[in-house]
Design a protein around this nucleic acid. Structure first.
Lengths: 101, 101
DNA sequence: GTGGCATATAGCCATATTGCTATTTTGCCA
DNA sequence: TGGCAAAATAGCAATATGGCTATATGCCAC
């Protein structure tokens, strides 16, 4: 069990699963951004907070949980933080889940 | 997201992952039982509590969480409850995780 | 430098999780 | 029937989680 439980804990939340789902296809779920490309750089906090229907700090915390688990990568540009899926890590986690469950 | 979060929450615990792992090969992890076959019927609560190093009620609760999530099936024989993996359901959950994460 | 915007952090509350001990329930069997 | 053994439930404590508001930080534009 290579530290699988913490990753599963990060995944075990409806809102965080939604975020991961939306970030699969950012352009179909979020409006264009000025200072960062939705696909190349990721999606900013406020868009996600609005779409989730929670406050900005709450969304920030969810994004942090996903980032700490390695599922998302943050990229700071100017005053924004853009989040995108780390597909390589996610694929690895899928393999580990399939292997250990 | 077909109610994936509750299943992931059931999985997001080291002790419960250990239980699932041990139940893959009950005969290599547990001594023989008199009233139920380790493979056909499952493994009883006390064996699992002992091996986990927790009290009987704590193990009972972990087993219940896994059973409620559909990962284990309980079988009552005499005064024992034997637990075994529900492989069909686990395979389905693996597919859903791979599909939605 | 000041003001303003996007994020992050701090502090707080309500609820959930994980563990325990004590008790109750269930089912054998002498 | 009474007593024993396994399991489940109840009740309790400690900690974690998920949400909020308020505040701090970082970064531009002026």
């Amino acid at each position: 069990m290579p530290q699988l439980a913490p990753v599963l804990r990060a995944l075990a939340n409806d809102k965080r699963l939604l975020i991961l789902e939306w970030l699969k296809h950012p352009r179909t779920h979020f409006p264009p951004q000025v200072d960062g490309d939705l696909v190349r750089d990721g999606v900013c906090n406020v868009f996600i907070a609005n779409k989730l229907g929670v406050s900005q700090p709450t969304a920030s915390e969810h994004l942090n949980v996903l980032a700490r688990a390695g599922l998302l990568r943050p990229k700071r540009i100017k005053q924004w933080t853009f989040y995108k899926r780390d597909e390589a890590r996610i694929a690895q986690i899928k393999r580990e889940i399939a292997r250990w469950i």
